[in-house]
Amino acid sequence: MISLNINQKDYQVDADPDMPLLWAIRDLAGLTGTKFGCGVAQCGACVVHLNGEAVRSCVTKVSRAAGQKIVTIEGLSQNNDHRLQIAWNEANVPQCGYCHSGQIMSAAVLLRENPNPTDEDIDMAMSGNICRCGTYLRIRKAIHLAAEMQRKESSSR
């Protein structure tokens, strides 16, 4: 048994130590918001936060994550109200929607580390996430929107 802390909840999973974290999250913990896209860290559909970093869970062994702090899309906010989630809705970003768990988890790290990202910063942060529907321009727009919300919140504090 391996102990995983996902979204501040403890899970005991019966997993091979070499099982990728992705499959432990999806098939054993039953959290299906994190997606399988390529299996080889090419597309970013499986991004989760491991101690705050946007790791590709399809190549991260569950043993690396044991006892660490894991956050999935389901745990990004309580009420779907993380500013990125609000911005995604505002800019009508998703089409099929499959890649957006990973897109949003990647964007969350960007916003934490750079509250005022330029287009170039966004490209730097998001070039590891593929969207086959081609929503990239709206992803960029939504990140700017979320950054703006973040700035307004912090200036009104």
Binding site: T34, E74, L76, P94
Partner: peptide, 8 residues
């Protein structure tokens, strides 16, 4: 469907 696609 957007809200369903932003929180998994």
């Amino acid at each position: 469907d957007t809200p369903l696609k932003t929180n998994g």
